[in-house]
Each structure stands twice: as C-alpha cells, then as structure tokens.
Amino acid sequence: MTTLELRGRWTLVTGASSGLGLEMARAIARDHGGHVLVVARRRDRLEALCEELRTRHGVQAECVVADLSRPEDVERVFTEATRERQLHGAVLNAGVTYWGDAVKLAPGAFQTLLDTNVTSVVRLSALLAPHLAAHGTRGGLMLVSSVAGLIPVPYQAAYSGTKAFVLSYGQALAQELRPTGVSVTVFAPGGIATELLEHSGLSQRFKAGDLGMMTAPECATHALRAFTRRRTLSVPGWLNQALALAARLLPRGVLAQHTATLYRPGP
C-alpha cells in the first residue's frame, strides 16, 4: 500500500487542545504541509492553535468545539468536518483517564470515560471510513490506544479496559477496511508527559524524564511516522516494545501483579 500523503490535504485530529493531539496537529502542518481540522472542548486553545498553524506554516486550519462524551457532539463533528471538505486522514486521539481504586470510580465518571474513549471512537470510525473511501484517495484512520491496552493496569482498570477495546477493535477494523484502500493504524504509546498525567494525579508516580516517559512532540513524531507508513499497530520506544513482547509471553496475572506495585496510590 502506498504511503499516506498528507500534504495539501485535510486531516481531522481530536483531543487537540493539549498533549499528544496538539503536537500531532503541529507536526502535520509543520512536517507534512497538511491542512488540519482540530477538535476539543476548549475553544480558546483551539483557536490559538489554528492561528499558530496558519501563521507559521501557511496551511489551512479550522476548529470544531465539541465534547466527545456527548453523542450529539460526535455526530456534529462529522457533519462539520465533512461539510464542503474532503478529509484524507483522521486521528482519533481524544481520551480521558482515571487513577485510583476501580470500585471508587463514580458511575457518571465511568460513563464519560467509556463514551469518550470507546463509543466516540466506534461512531466516528463508522462515519469516517466510508467518507475516506468514497473518493478513492486511499485515506487513513489512526486510533490512539495505549500500552495500558496491552496489559492489565490495576488502579487504571477502566482506562486500561477501554484502551484494550480500541486496540482489538482497530486491528480488526484494519482488516475489514483493507479492500477499500483505507488504512487503520492503532498507535499504542506508553507514558507521555502531558496535562493528562497532571490532571489524573499520575504525576505523583511518573514524571517527565523517567525511564520510558516520552515528551508529547517525540511521541507525535513516532505516531505520524506510523500513520503515514500505514502500519496496523505501532508501539513507540524500546521499553514499551519490551512490555508489548512481555504481554505476549508472560501470564497476564503476573503482569497485573507487577503493574499494581507501580500504580498503587500512596496513603
């Protein structure tokens, strides 16, 4: 399959107001000369990002303000993204997490996590795949999973479960869409030094510079390399790749027991 060419074409990026999504939007514009449609909840950040991309890189950049835990917003994102615009790529990166005892996760918070990490991904994939295939341009989808989807992660049990779904769903979807020419890449990074780490409280355990922790720009470079090369699954970094290998070779109970010692909250 030919390389995914982003130059002069539109790519949708969700979760683009900070972290990995923001850096992927920047890299698409800076390194690939691609037009970017960014999606997130924070209008001020999206508008600032669009102005930056237009001014610095001479590309087109537009935004859609949406909360992807809301089904009506998911539908609106697709409608606005494809109105008078042909998308060539889509990066479904938006996600939320929870760190703590699984039994203490409130039902409403769990539903938000599930709707954002799983339901919106499935719905947008179903809407976007026919659009990307319709004009024969051999577009591409990227679904952002996590190393936490490869192994059980105690104290991030719900998040880990949603990312395991994305991993399996994305790899299966890749085979279903192969005849259409649309590629599906599942990107499964490990720890990234982003706001998500701070907001979840995980920064108490893991910090930028720790072994295996990536910066968001570094991770974005890995992600877009995999995306444009149409890889079905990409796990960046030698330590994360070692964990992926361990997930295939070791009993999952052993991995979960070891991971629990790393993620167990302090007193």
Rank of each mutant, 00 (worst) to 15 (best):
78 F>H: 15
79 T>G: 02
81 A>C: 01
81 A>G: 05
81 A>I: 02
84 E>S: 04
84 E>V: 00
84 E>K: 01
84 E>D: 14
85 R>G: 03
85 R>E: 01
86 Q>I: 07
86 Q>L: 10
87 L>S: 04
87 L>F: 02
87 L>H: 05
88 H>V: 02
88 H>W: 12
88 H>L: 12
89 G>W: 02
90 A>C: 00
90 A>E: 00
90 A>P: 01
93 N>V: 07
93 N>S: 08
94 A>F: 06
97 T>S: 12
98 Y>C: 05
101 D>Q: 13
102 A>K: 05
103 V>Q: 13
105 L>N: 10
107 P>S: 00
107 P>Y: 05
107 P>I: 06
107 P>Q: 02
107 P>R: 05
109 A>H: 11
109 A>K: 11
109 A>F: 04
109 A>Y: 02
110 F>P: 11
110 F>W: 15
111 Q>M: 11
111 Q>L: 13
111 Q>E: 14
112 T>I: 08
112 T>Q: 14
113 L>M: 10
114 L>I: 03
116 T>F: 07
116 T>H: 09
116 T>I: 08
117 N>K: 12
118 V>N: 06
119 T>R: 15
119 T>C: 06
120 S>M: 11
121 V>I: 15
121 V>H: 15
122 V>S: 06
123 R>T: 15
124 L>W: 14
125 S>H: 12
128 L>Y: 15
129 A>H: 06
129 A>Y: 04
133 A>S: 14
133 A>L: 07
134 A>F: 03
135 H>F: 12
136 G>V: 13
136 G>A: 10
137 T>V: 09
138 R>D: 15
138 R>V: 03
139 G>F: 04
139 G>V: 13
139 G>E: 10
140 G>H: 13
141 L>V: 04
142 M>T: 07
142 M>H: 08
145 S>F: 10
145 S>N: 11
146 S>M: 10
147 V>Y: 08
148 A>M: 09
148 A>Q: 09
149 G>R: 05
149 G>I: 05
150 L>D: 06
150 L>C: 01
152 P>R: 09
153 V>F: 08
154 P>Y: 03
154 P>V: 04
156 Q>A: 05
156 Q>G: 12
158 A>L: 04
160 S>C: 05
161 G>K: 06
162 T>H: 06
163 K>A: 12
163 K>W: 12
163 K>L: 12
163 K>T: 10
166 V>M: 14
167 L>T: 15
168 S>F: 13
170 G>I: 00
170 G>P: 00
170 G>T: 04
171 Q>K: 14
173 L>S: 06
174 A>R: 14
174 A>S: 15
175 Q>C: 01
176 E>G: 00
177 L>D: 03
182 V>Y: 01
182 V>R: 01
182 V>W: 01
182 V>G: 02
183 S>P: 03
